[in-house]
Design a protein around this nucleic acid. Sequence first.
DNA 1: TCAAAATGCTATACGCTATAGTTATTGTAG
DNA 2: CTACAATAACTATAGCGTATAGCATTTTGA
Lengths: 141, 141
Amino acid sequence: MIRDPLKDLPGYALRRVSVAFMSRLAARLVRLHLRPTEATVLLVIQDNPGVKQSEIGRLLGVVSANMAPLVARLADRNLIIRQAVDGRSQGLTLSEAGRRTAQKARGIMDDHEADLIAHIPKADCAAFVRVLHTLANQKDN
Amino acid sequence: MIRDPLKDLPGYALRRVSVAFMSRLAARLVRLHLRPTEATVLLVIQDNPGVKQSEIGRLLGVVSANMAPLVARLADRNLIIRQAVDGRSQGLTLSEAGRRTAQKARGIMDDHEADLIAHIPKADCAAFVRVLHTLANQKDN
DNA sequence: TCAAAATGCTATACGCTATAGTTATTGTAG
DNA sequence: CTACAATAACTATAGCGTATAGCATTTTGA
């Protein structure tokens, strides 16, 4: 057995857990031909009809350069509808197909979150979630 | 303010925290011209002189196809030395320069981990670390 | 001894991230 | 009202970590 110098680094464990978690989520979403980020964008639009893609980007921490092709893909698949709200920005809404897909995506993501929770010892779960939210809501750059 | 349907998903928070954490680590390591994975590989070699790259890959969860160019880069920079242990595998050791770099990398990573810990409310820190290790050591694929 | 496993490798692709730079529109301060 | 700054959407490009497929060689073990 070889020594593991990263054994005791919480940050490294965080990274490993996140990667594994994300890859499982991606595997579940292939059924809908959605990438994880695409799915999250669909959910945001579902909850905020008429939202602008720049607003979604700010919320999710996705720069506009990456929002553009992402939104274009969803529009090309007729999952969302773009309607100009003024000369430079468009409001995004789910199409009928988009609503169905978003609903399924929500189910998948909820299941996936439930799986995560299920693997956490009950006694520590609340603290764990609390810390994650603390860290996530820190203006960490 | 727009609604955030991901607000209450711990898994999503996990992902965001991990990404932010990694990007800060990467920023700190540019000084050594090391990527995060390269730094972790250096540390593993430092702690396990003569280790084979296949062993490192298994430990860190990096497939051999990705270990090959990674190790080649470190060797090209004369940070590590490859010595054949048999016809197909090589033992990896740090060079003098590699030892210096690994030492600095360890310092950076320790500081980085300390920063993470510092941002966690003390009361929940132990539980948080416990959960991370639980999740990390689950056979999650 | 011979087939299976292991090792290192190339080529290639995907997903998320980022920066730089463009065009057009809107907002605002003088 | 004009000039300048900010906003929005976008293209092009790149870096990093991840993955699969396939290959040549060597070692192992039934």
